[in-house]
Structures are given as C-alpha cells and as structure tokens.
Design a protein around this nucleic acid. Structure first.
Lengths: 240, 240
DNA sequence: CTAACTTCGTGATGCAGATCACAGGTGATT
DNA sequence: AATCACCTGTGATCTGCATCACGAAGTTAG
C-alpha cells in the first residue's frame, strides 16, 4: 500500500495491534465495526495543522502514530504549549461533543497517522453505541484532569525553576525511566518550546538549564538529558 | 418539611421547576426516574467542604441551590480559586468517571442544596442510561472548556491588571448586565479571594482597584461595582 | 459602646524574570 | 567550504509585583 511521509499506515482498526493498550480504541466489536465505517484514515507530514483554536468543530482526530503539539495562543502572538499528545489520544473531542469552537490549536510535530471522524457521524455513533459514549466520558475526564494539572502548575508555582523541574520529572516518568536512579530522557523540544510549555522566556530556560548543570543536578549529552540528582530536582519542584 | 440552613429544599427532581434550564438535570423520564432512586438530597451550611483535592472519589454532587467555591491548593498553603460553581453544575464528575482522586476542593460559600450520588450507583446508572451518559460527556466538555479558559488566562496574560479586567468583564456578562452601557455587579468576594482567583496578592488587587477608580473606569458603591468605561476595561483585558 | 476581628489602603524595599542585544554553535543545503 | 537558518549561551538593564509592615475602616459580638 501507499505509505506517505514514511509511515506504515495501519489501515483498519479491526486489525490494529496496539488497539488494546489504548483507552478509547479498545471498543467492543460492534462499536468498533461501526467506527470503522465512519472513520477516514489520514496521514500528515510534520508541521501540519489539524485544527486551529476558535474554528467550529469539524470532528474528532484519533491519533494513531506520531505526536501532536497542542497550544493556545494570545492575540499578540505569545504561545503556550498545553501538552504534547501521544498516540491513542482523541483530539478535538470536547469541542465536537459540545459544539463549541476548538479551544486549542493542534499541530503535528512528527509525521502522523490520524483517524478522522466527521462530527455528525461521530455524534450519531455515540447515540447508537452507549459503551463508546462512556469511553468518551473517560477520555474527557482524562483531559480535564490534565488541564487541572496545567492550571495548578501555572497558577501555584512561584518560580520558573520550579516549573521546569516539574516538567523534567514528568517527562522522566513517562519513559519507564522513573524508577532508575539516573533517568535519561530525550529532549525533543527546543528551549523556546520548553519556555512556551512553562510560560516563561527562552533565555530563562537556557539560564535555568545552565544552573542545573552547574549544580550537578542534570547533565546533557547531545540531545539526551541525564538526571543525576533526582532528589535535588524534586526539592526544586515541590518547594519554591 | 424540615428546612435546615434556611433553604427551601426541592425534594424531588421529578417536580423540580428549574430542571429544564439545566444541562445535566433535564433528562428524559426513565433516566430521571432512575436518578431519583439513587440520589440523596442533602443540605449544607455555608463553609461546608464537599470534598477535598486528593481524596478518592466518593461520588458526584449535583448543585441545586447555592454557590460552591472550587479551588486547588499548594503544599505551602497558597490557594487558587478555579471557579465559583453555580446551581445546575455537577461537581466531582470527572473524578467519579475516571476513578482518579478529586482534582479540586469544593467548599460551599452559601447554604447549599446538593444531590449526592454514590460512585458505584452513578456508574451503574450511566451504563443503563445511554442518554444520561451523553449528558455527562457534555458536562465534562463544559468543564474542560472552562479549564482551558483558566489556563489561557493564567498562562498568557502578562499583567495582574489584565487578569482582573478579564475577571470583571466575565462577571458582568453573567448577570445579563453585559448589554448595558454601565453594567453593575455585586462584589461578593473579598480582595483576598479575588487575588486567589487571578493568582496574585491581596495588596495588588487593592492597588489595581484603586487605580481603576482613579482612572474613572470603575466606581464602587458599597459592595456594588459599576463599570463606567467598558471599552477602557476591555482594552486592559485584551492588550497588555 | 467598646473590644476583637476581619478587610482594606498605602508606603518602602527587593528580586525574579522579561526584554534587548549580540556572539558563538550546529546542522542543513548547495 | 560557504552560506543560510536556526538554535544556544550570556551580559546589562528595567519593571511588575511579592512581601513586609502598619494604620484606617468596617463588621460582629459581648
């Protein structure tokens, strides 16, 4: 089959191997069958925009492969990256359910495979399949939960250093590296983007990293970051 | 019937007059009947705590009367008020759906009437009533939407003045006063609480109000605030 | 009607971090 | 190897606001 942007496209959800690990995708057979009928399997290159904040909801995007940057943006161009979505997440869900405009902008940062479902089709699907509807509620709860974490991090931390430390710890816990004494993680983002994630300026991020290195708390090798002193980092993250 | 804390308790959802105006409550007859069977109508005095951030979810709280303060709190005691919930909202919903701990603390700021539903009962109810399940998804979308607004306000505004202006405009739009040239609104919160809503210090709020008054943008009469210059306020809210 | 709180108003001070400005790195592209 | 575009590092400066500190003005209670 054709494979644009260097992706191995999983054509059908019915035969998808990773389905069972994913909260939303792991539907009972009838629902899955119905979903199969209304979805459009699509592929996007890196840097494609799935939807823009403020647009009327066209439908949902189930992310199968690749990562997507979710951000909000102020009138004067300042950007805040809310999260980096991973495969298995459903994007544009809340807007499609409520009918309100998308509240975020979604932009791919890898080549991505996405299953798109038109809003009307999706709503009909939800009416017919109660079990899927509950999955949606679960997904939305997850999203709400994540948003609350974001609010907490933005609203309750005093310093930029604290937020950076929180972010690094969070990242390290995602790679199964959390248990290790000295977790490693790939820094796939630029300082600029990290700054946008914690709501600060690029220069501050650079300075903070320099400081962490000087204090032997982290160490970088190319684009991998090694956390040498996890307890110290945790101190910075929790305290002030 | 008994009427604690000076409330007129609406005993049954079936005869509730305000039901139709409320997103979640306006259920089709069978679901409503079932809901009636699992809910506990309860009343709380002002200052009661419905649930605390971090607790395992016991169930949902449908707010019938009164207002509830939703906040998150850091280890060092700093508090951020996320929102003031109004009648019709369902509290503790996302935690009850996902099974994760409550992400907020809910505290009444008026005498309140609340319908409580135990988590297991609620989940069973959702399985049996697909239409209610969709309502839940809608509610969660609302909540997610609100959380996104919060994130935006916290993460993208440069100054405390901007956030205060946003808050005042938002409040004025809730009372049907938005259309008027000079909307009035009751300031039911102290400067301290307002500060906790916009993530700043009490003194700053006082100073900002003083400044707005000096510039003839607002004017206060006792606990009512009159917005004299809406365009100026909007300038402050959007720009910097 | 005074005491005891709570909330509000305002000055003085200090610091975190935004912003500007520029220099050195790094990797692609040709 | 040379150009370009984009990152990273670092100094200098400037400001918004947190924090401390205290006194005035409301509010509740005895």
């Amino acid at each position: 089959m054709i494979s644009p942007y260097g992706l191995d496209i999983v054509e059908s959800c019915l035969t998808c191997k990773t389905r069972s690990e994913r909260l939303f995708c792991d539907l009972p057979a009838p629902a899955l069958q119905a979903f199969e009928g209304i979805k459009y399997a699509t592929a996007y290159p890196k840097g494609a925009v799935l939807f823009v904040e403020g647009q009327a909801p066209r439908g949902i995007f189930v992310l199968c492969k690749g990562r997507v940057k979710l951000s909000i943006c102020s009138t004067d161009g300042k950007t805040l990256i809310v999260k980096i979505a991973e495969p298995g997440e459903v994007l544009g869900l809340s807007a499609s359910v409520s009918g309100k405009p998308y509240e975020l902008t979604a932009e791919t940062i890898d080549p991505c495979q996405v299953n798109f479902v038109k809003r009307e089709d999706f709503l009909r699907f939800l009416r017919d399949h109660a079990d899927a509807c509950f999955r949606v509620a679960e997904q939305l709860s997850e999203k709400y939960n994540a948003a609350c974490h974001e609010v907490r991090s933005l609203g309750l931390s005093h310093s930029a250093g604290e937020k950076l430390a929180k972010l690094l710890l969070e990242w390290s816990s995602k790679n199964g590296e959390a248990t290790k004494m000295e977790p490693r993680l790939k820094l796939a983002l630029t300082h600029e983007e990290i700054a946008q994630m914690i709501g600060t300026s690029r220069e501050t991020v650079t300075r903070l990293f320099a400081d962490l290195k000087k204090r032997q708390i982290v160490q970088s090798k190319g684009s991998t970051l090694i956390i040498r002193n996890k307890t110290a980092l945790r101190m910075i993250a929790t305290n002030n």
